[in-house]
Write a protein that binds this DNA or RNA. Structure first.
Lengths: 144, 144
DNA sequence: TTAATTGCAAACATTTTGCAGGTTC
DNA sequence: GAACCTGCAAAATGTTTGCAATTAA
């Protein structure tokens, strides 16, 4: 059960319950982060979140934002998306899907196509198991 | 024509011709890098290359290794593979293929399956064109 | 000779870490 | 009360940049 299945604009009580259900202590700072991330599906960066929180007058430190994001990923509340070594994106949509990455704008968007890529264990190198399949479709703005 | 189609272990003359053909001045340092990269298909990192060159007694600076790799990518001699924010991998196999990334070992290996993913322009967001499709299959070492 | 490249060190951006004080269960 | 979290500043990492000296065409 993902948060968006429950409520598209969750209140703090719902968010606190969500964090607790994932064994993440619902501290004030984590709720601030969750409030932004789980209001809707989005692709956030640590720096972007920090700025958004500060702009909203919230008191959170950089370290806490990083720690919180790492904790959420570990708990399965967020998915890390690696498309660019300059920034790590955190995707609040944890359901299977893939991405368009616009090389010109740096914008990351969801691709809602079914993955025609069935990976079976016997396709993998010996002694390994599947973690995930990431598909990134890199695009550019059309010239002219 | 890729270098490996010509010679699996190219000599300096062949390498210099390859660089020139791609409008890359064949300087001593670039040949050192090319000698390693194009001896066989591989996934190198800037730091790994620098160490390999220094271990071999070659005199190259860190900046030159980075500049050279960027120049080779720009010239189409190498392909950048983004799988991990800690390192950028440079793949000397520029033919279309995908990757296994072992999260436990950090090892990157080629997947030689045909991509069952045909992306057409009308599948892309309006006003954009396709650059590339990157598929990364993340794996872990099997427990036990 | 003209444009391009190299090396060095310093600058950068992002992320991580150590630790004292505060918070959660 | 025991375990966990926060904020700050400092450190670590990987990569880029500025510039004088050198090399390629």
């Amino acid at each position: 059960m993902t948060i968006d299945a429950v409520n598209p604009n969750p209140d703090d009580k719902t968010l606190a319950a969500l964090l607790s259900a994932h064994r993440v202590y619902p501290t004030a700072q984590r709720l601030m982060v969750a409030r932004i991330l789980f209001a809707r599906h989005q692709h956030a960066t640590a720096d972007g979140l920090l700025h958004a929180l500060h702009a909203a007058g919230q008191r959170v430190s950089k370290a806490t934002v990083y720690n919180t994001l790492a904790r959420f990923v570990e708990a399965g509340l967020l998915r890390e998306v690696i498309v660019d070594n300059q920034h790590t994106f955190y995707d609040s949509n944890t359901r299977p899907h893939h991405h368009f990455y616009n090389l010109d704008s740096g914008e990351l968007t969801d691709v809602n196509i079914a993955t025609p890529l069935a990976v079976r264990d016997h396709d993998l190198p010996a002694g390994t198991t599947l973690d995930s399949v990431d598909i990134v479709i890199r695009i550019r703005n059309a010239a002219g």
